[in-house]
C-alpha cells in the first residue's frame, strides 16, 4: 500500500511542478494545489497505513501497540489542509483581481505591462 501511495505522490509532485512552470497564473495556482495535496499524501504515508485498527493505548501503557497507524500525522495533515485552503482562497482572489485590472492571466504579458509602466 505504501509503495502505491509513494508512486501516486511522485506522480502528483510531477504534475504539480509541471503546472507551476506554466505561464498561465491560474494553472500555477492549480499546480500549487496539486503539489500541496501530494505533500499531504506524503505525510499520510509517513504515518504508516493500517486497516481497521484504532490507535488506542491500553491502560497502564505509555504507547499504542505495534502496527498502528500514527494518528498525529493525520492531525498534521488536517492543519495543513486548513492553512492551505486559506492561502488558496487568497491567491484565487488575488489572481482574479489582477485579471480585472490587466485583462489577462498570462505572466509574461503582465510582466511586459509592468515594465512598460516604468
Amino acid at each position: 500500500m505504501e509503495t502505491l501511495i509513494a508512486l501516486v505522490t511522485g506522480t502528483m509532485v510531477a504534475v504539480g511542478v509541471y503546472l507551476l512552470l506554466q505561464r498561465d497564473l491560474v494553472r500555477k495556482i492549480i499546480g500549487v494545489v496539486v503539489l500541496s495535496n501530494s505533500i499531504h499524501l506524503l505525510i499520510f504515508a509517513m504515518g504508516r497505513m493500517t486497516r481497521a485498527s484504532s490507535p488506542l493505548i491500553p491502560p497502564g501503557q505509555k504507547y499504542p501497540p505495534e502496527g498502528i497507524a500514527n494518528p498525529l500525522s493525520q492531525a498534521l495533515i488536517l492543519t495543513a489542509i486548513v492553512i492551505g485552503f486559506g492561502l488558496l482562497a487568497f491567491s484565487l482572489v488575488l489572481i482574479y483581481r489582477l485579471y480585472q485590472s490587466r485583462g489577462t492571466v498570462d505572466a509574461d504579458a503582465i510582466i511586459e505591462a509592468t515594465l512598460g509602466d516604468e
Binding site: 500549487v32 500541496s36 505525510i43 504515518g47 498525529l72 495543513a80 488575488l94 489582477l98 505591462a113
Partner: peptide, 28 residues
C-alpha cells in the same frame, strides 16, 4: 502592488510546501 504580490505569493507558497514536506519527512 498586485503584480509584485503575485510573485511574492506564489514563491512563498512553494517555499511553505517544501517546508511542510521536510517536516513530514523528519517526523517520519
Amino acid at each position: 502592488q498586485l503584480a509584485g504580490a503575485v510573485k511574492y505569493v506564489v514563491i512563498n507558497l512553494v517555499s511553505s510546501l517544501l517546508f511542510l514536506a521536510g517536516v513530514g519527512l523528519v517526523y517520519g
